[in-house]
Design a protein around this nucleic acid. Structure first.
Lengths: 328, 328
DNA sequence: TCAAGGCGCTAATACGAATTATCACGGCCG
DNA sequence: CGGCCGTGATAATTCGTATTAGCGCCTTGA
């Protein structure tokens, strides 16, 4: 249309006028006019191949991206991620094609489109250690939402400070006069569980009080029996849903929460569970974690110096009504 | 590593053994071994450049993808889209980078990554007519979630049959004995509104009853006054939230819903609105619309013959408690 | 005896843009 | 008049893959 070469179009298209590049204003105008007339847009694929980046951020979740069963626990993270992406002019590639092998989604498979994106945000309660290690080893830029242990190298993350938040919850129970507290949950496995347990244990240790760990592989009724037998007066529940179940069975037995038993929830519900109780505990800054994850990732991509790539955000305390002084 | 050419690797990588392609089993094994050893994965960008498609579906929303303010009205659509995409082994590209110009997001801008995807799902109450026309004209494969009028050509869509669903709701009111019904809402503009109004009007026309259209640009109080003055006994509310507002003001005036006034809601809430009433009306098959949208799109892409590209799905009636026979 | 085809593989090319080295052309200087 | 420089543009190369037309040798059938 304009009689110029492909190179010239490229230069005009990208508004280049820096070092060494010179286009006569008249020519530039002619090309721009043709671009507008035809609505020409550079093929993003070819562009990416040549330029090595394309402002696309991958989002990989170990759970379905738009969850149904998990009661939308992950939704706020995605809201935050989207808001950041929009602000930064990035598109999001949801890696939904990852096949489920051996009961879990895998990032690396024989047609993964991971590298189509400049970098990647990882989401999920527990990330596969091998895959994480491989991401680190191969130098893929990525950020985990949620703290992760090293995997052959430091893992960039934006997590919630479960340890501090749990410690704060436990201290509130201590302040209320409790001396026999139990931790209800795994307390191990995913970092988020281990961190909570660490916060629980260290606070009680510091207070010189005994700890008690109640696993969740038994029925709530059995758990309650064990707790009562041990004269426990306050329980911190790793999972909101476990707290709800315990409260339910306690009520069935004629016990009142919190008068007879205080129950504290360490975070928002990850499994669907409804209760008319509002639990004392804390709220996870999920949206903010999404924001900052994208921030860290783009910082990584742009190699911005002094970017802190491991961040723990504080959780917001929730008063609720499930903590009361112990009976004597 | 194996001493073979790039072409051979490509052939082995893609498991080609069809027409004309022959690789010695021994060679194939050697290459496969090297691939496994190095964890080599073909660059999806280059692959796309050569193959012209990449199993990536674009998702463009005229509202934020992960909405907060709209009370997650769009969430179920996305759930359906994701489920289909996962089943089909497709990734989703959320076109979040679309800039907002003149108060609305635009698909076409000077760096749109639309063509990176094989096709595109469009979501939103009202799609820009010009952009829709351009998509049709340029032959971009796409599907709209929600029925759309032609835009210089037929628009592929998967919509809800608002017209039929509204007609059914109105007929229920007629069966209950109502003869003076009003339509509360725009009744025009987006296709979804126009369709509802068409269902309302045609049903009353067929019954030989008068129609009454109450716009929403006045306060609920004024609306209620007008309705009572006209001795209207049943109102169909285009928007759930408008129904809630009307019910609220009616209650303030000492009226009872539905004894004094029946209020029917034409679909799920699109704006946040809470009410202790469960409205009689219908439910939009949002998740299913998402499923089928992806189905239509992939049908379009694969040029599957006899694919119906314009589909209207039935809405599910909801009984609720806001319809009662009129007082005499 | 010879054309036709089978065999396993590779060289070359296409995909569409970004980038860089280089070109032709005047004008200016000494 | 030759050399130099600033101009404005382009040819050529690159990115990493998919695809195709052959390569030379050997077997087969007529």
């Amino acid at each position: 249309m304009t009689g110029v070469s492909q190179a010239t179009v490229s230069l005009v298209l990208n508004g280049r006028d820096d070092g060494g590049v010179r286009i006569a204003p008249e020519t530039r105008e002619r090309v721009l006019h043709a671009i507008r007339a035809t609505g020409y847009v550079a093929d993003p694929v070819a562009r990416r191949l040549a330029a090595r980046h394309n402002r696309i951020l991958g989002v990989f979740t170990y759970e379905p991206v738009f969850p149904v069963g998990t009661g939308d626990f992950y939704h706020p993270f995605l809201v935050g991620i989207e808001e950041s992406a929009e602000r930064l002019g990035c598109d999001l590639l949801l890696l939904t094609s990852a096949p489920v092998t051996d009961g879990r989604r895998r990032i690396f498979h024989d047609d993964n489109r991971l590298r189509l994106a400049d970098g990647c945000v990882l989401l999920g309660r527990s990330l596969d250690q091998d895959e994480l290690g491989r991401l680190v080893a191969e130098g893929h830029p990525f950020v985990s939402v949620g703290r992760r242990d090293d995997a052959g190298g430091p893992v960039p993350y934006v997590g919630a400070d479960y340890s501090a938040a749990t410690a704060a919850v436990v201290r509130r129970a201590l302040d209320a006069g409790h001396t026999r507290l139990a931790y209800l949950g795994q307390g191990a496995g995913p970092e988020s569980h281990a961190d909570r347990f660490a916060g629980y244990r260290s606070t009680l240790d510091a207070a010189g009080l005994p700890t008690r760990h109640e696993p969740t592989d038994r029925s709530p009724a059995d758990v309650l029996d064990a707790l009562l037998a041990a004269e426990v007066t306050a329980v911190v529940a790793e999972e909101y849903a476990d707290g709800v179940a315990l409260a339910g069975i306690a009520r069935d037995r004629g016990l009142t929460v919190p008068a007879d038993l205080s129950i504290l929830a360490l975070g928002d519900p990850t499994r669907p569970a409804t209760s008319d109780l509002e639990f004392t505990g804390f709220r996870i800054p999920r949206r903010e974690m999404g924001w900052q994850a994208v921030e860290v990732l783009t910082g990584l991509l742009a190699a911005v110096p002094h970017t802190v790539t491991q961040r723990l955000l504080p959780c917001q305390p929730v008063d609720g009504g499930t903590l009361a002084p112990p009976r004597h």
